[in-house]
Each structure stands twice: as C-alpha cells, then as structure tokens.
Computed example of a mutant assay.
Amino acid sequence: MDERLTLRSHLDQSASQTPHGAALGDVIKAIAAAAIELAALIADGPLVGIIGQDGDVNPDGDRQKDIDVAADAVIRRALRDTAVAAVLSEEAVLPETLRPTAPFCVAIDPLDGSANLENNISVGTIFSVRPRGNDVLSTFFEPGTAQCAAGFIVYGPQTTLVLALNARVDIFILDRRAREFLLIRPAAQIARNTPEFAINASNRRHWHGPVRTYIDECLAGTNGGGEADFNMRWIGSLVAESLRILVRGGVFLYPADARPSYREGRLRLLYEAHPMALVMEWAGGAASTGRRRILEVAARTLHQRVPLIMGSVLGVRDVAAIHERTEPMFDNSDAPLFARRGLFL
C-alpha cells in the first residue's frame, strides 16, 4: 500500500495557511491524541471498569455516564498544554479557563451518544475551534462563521477523524498499530442531491407542518410527483449520521417539534450544530435550522439548543423552501395549509 499522509504531517503542511497555524495544529493534534486514548478506552469498556453507569446530570439535563466523565477528563488534560484560552464542554456549566491570553477557544462534546455504547453503536467526539475574542466568554457568543476549525471523531469499526480546516474537509482513519491518523479521503465533497434522508420517524406526531410535509413527500417519491424514490436511514448517532452524509450524501433532520423540551430544537449549538455545519459547508453541503443558516446563528446561552437540518445542498434547500412558505409557529400539522405547500404541489 502506498504510504499515506499522517494527520501530523498534514497539520504541519497546513500551518502557514492560517493565523497562528502551528498553534492551531497543536490544538488539533492534542484532540487527536485524546481520541486515540478514548478509542482504546471505549473498545475495552467493561474490561477497564467502564460499565455505562449513570452519574450526575450535565448542564443540559442529560444523565451523565461514567464514560462521559472519563472522556471529558481525557480531553481537558490533552488541551492544557496547548494554545487554548478556555474550553467549553457539554459536561460543565461554564467554560474552564486554561491560558487566558492564548489565541484559541474550544467548544467540545467529549462523547456524543454515550447511551449507544451498551448496544455497541458508534459514538464520537465533536469539536469546534475559534479565535479568542476580546475576552474569553464573548468568544462563545459569536456566530458559527467565526470558527477556524472543527470536526468530529467516530469510534466505530474504525476510528475516523473528520477535520474541517482551511476551507476543506479531510477524512483520516486511525492506524491502531502505529497510533497515527492517516489521510484516506482528501478534500471530501458531499453529493449535491442524494435521495436519502435520516430522521427519527417515531416522533412524527410531534413534528411541525414543514417537516412532516417534506418527509411525506420523500416517502411518496415518484408516486407523489417527486423525481426520485427515497431511502430512510436512522442510526441515532449524530457522528455516524454525519459521516454517512459525507460518504453517501443525503439529508439529516433533527428538527424542533411540539414537545416542550424540543421547541428550540435538541442539539447544542456551540459544540454540535456549529461544528457540524462548518464540516457540511466546507464539504460542499449545507446546514440550516429550516429557516436560517446555522453558521449565522450566534448563541444566546452557552448550552443553547437548535434544530439541525444538514447534508446535500439541494436536499437542505428543499426543506428550507417548505419552511419559507409557512409561518413559524406551533402548528396543527394536519391542517390543509400544510398539505398544499409542498415541493411538488
């Protein structure tokens, strides 16, 4: 097999293209090193005392598991020797200040989808890096366009690292023997229009009209006047869904809905939606709330939730088009208004 470029070499080559490029490379190398440690910890699981036991409640009200706490500790430890002013984690109420004058701030979900581990389903780490502003805290309240790098790691059959840096997206895979990430897909691009969608269909009764209309039309396919018949996918793991979109295309929807705890969406803006949106856009795709480009949204609170619709640019456009034809409200989705305002009618 031809010798592949390592993540370390890739970052060294990229350093001249970004302000503080060498320091930014060191931040990403530290996250990658933490991911290698976490991959081994996740793989061993109960053999090293990680049994999925519930612990405290995190700032979002989600029950923490032992692996969430362990992952958070591993990543914080890795970042302490880098040029990071502060790190905001899903597992803590406030950012932790590391080096107040350092050039970068990091927002991170240390282990997204930890509840899936008991079923041996892929989980991951999601990260966002942005230049430090005038003060540490205000940095996290800037729009997603402020990010200078983002990405995610999938802990699955392979450990895969997806990196958005310098306006492109590269995919690496962990060589477990060498303990190095190797480049397997440079400059990844998302297919513009794949007839495939991912959504938790069991929540259909809670969806607002635009989402229900879009999914109904996908399911109707060519019988309903559409140009293609759609496949449905739902893994229930954000990182796995995102990697599939990078490889195959399609649209992922985690919308707001009528349930009280979902009215502003469910995914966290700073360390889930913002980094995923940067990955999607730099790979030629799109990401939206349904009514607004995700990267233009600035957080009002550190753990703010938003709807997330992302993937192939034409698919996201279609979802947004239906939203634009309806008023934003908690609607009666069975009303005729929403039956008339689809893509094909």
Rank of each mutant, 00 (worst) to 15 (best):
E3Y: 07
R4Q: 09
R4G: 08
L5S: 07
Q13N: 13
A15H: 04
T18K: 03
H20A: 01
V27D: 12
V27R: 05
I28W: 07
K29L: 14
A32V: 08
A33S: 15
A34G: 13
E37W: 01
L38Y: 03
A43Q: 10
A43L: 02
L47T: 14
V48S: 04
G49C: 12
I50T: 05
I51S: 14
G55V: 09
G55H: 11
P59C: 13
D62K: 15
R63P: 00
D66P: 09
I67K: 04
D68A: 14
D68W: 13
V69I: 11
A70P: 00
R76C: 10
L79C: 06
R80L: 09
T82G: 06
V84W: 01
A85D: 00
V93Y: 03
P100M: 06
T101G: 04
D109L: 05
P110H: 02
P110D: 06
P110W: 00
D112F: 02
G113A: 08
S114K: 10
S122F: 01
T125K: 10
V129L: 14
R132N: 09
G133H: 06
N134W: 00
F140S: 07
F141N: 00
P143H: 10
G144K: 02
A146R: 12
A146W: 07
Q147M: 14
A150W: 01
F152M: 12
F152P: 13
F152D: 14
Y155G: 02
G156I: 03
P157Y: 01
T159E: 07
L161D: 06
V162T: 09
L163D: 03
L163C: 02
A164S: 15
A167H: 14
R168Y: 01
V169E: 09
R176K: 14
L182S: 15
L183K: 14
A187L: 01
Q189Y: 03
P195E: 02
E196Y: 09
A198G: 10
N200L: 00
N200Q: 05
H208N: 13
R212Y: 01
R212V: 01
T213P: 00
E217R: 06
G221Y: 05
T222Y: 00
T222V: 12
N223E: 10
D229E: 12
F230R: 04
N231V: 02
M232Q: 11
M232N: 08
G236V: 01
L238M: 03
E241Q: 06
S242K: 04
I245P: 01
V247Y: 05
R248H: 12
G250L: 03
G250H: 01
V251A: 15
V251T: 13
P255C: 07
A256S: 12
D257G: 00
S261W: 09
Y262F: 12
G265I: 05
G265Y: 02
G265R: 00
L269Q: 05
A273F: 03
H274K: 09
M280D: 11
G290I: 03
R292Q: 14
R292P: 00
R293K: 04
I294L: 14
A299M: 04
R300V: 11
H303T: 11
P307V: 07
I309P: 07
M310R: 05
G311Y: 11
G311T: 14
G311Q: 10
S312A: 10
L314I: 02
D318P: 08
D318R: 12
I322K: 13
H323P: 07
E324I: 09
E324H: 15
T326A: 07
F330N: 10
N332P: 01
N332R: 13
D334M: 10
A335Q: 13
R341P: 00
G342C: 03
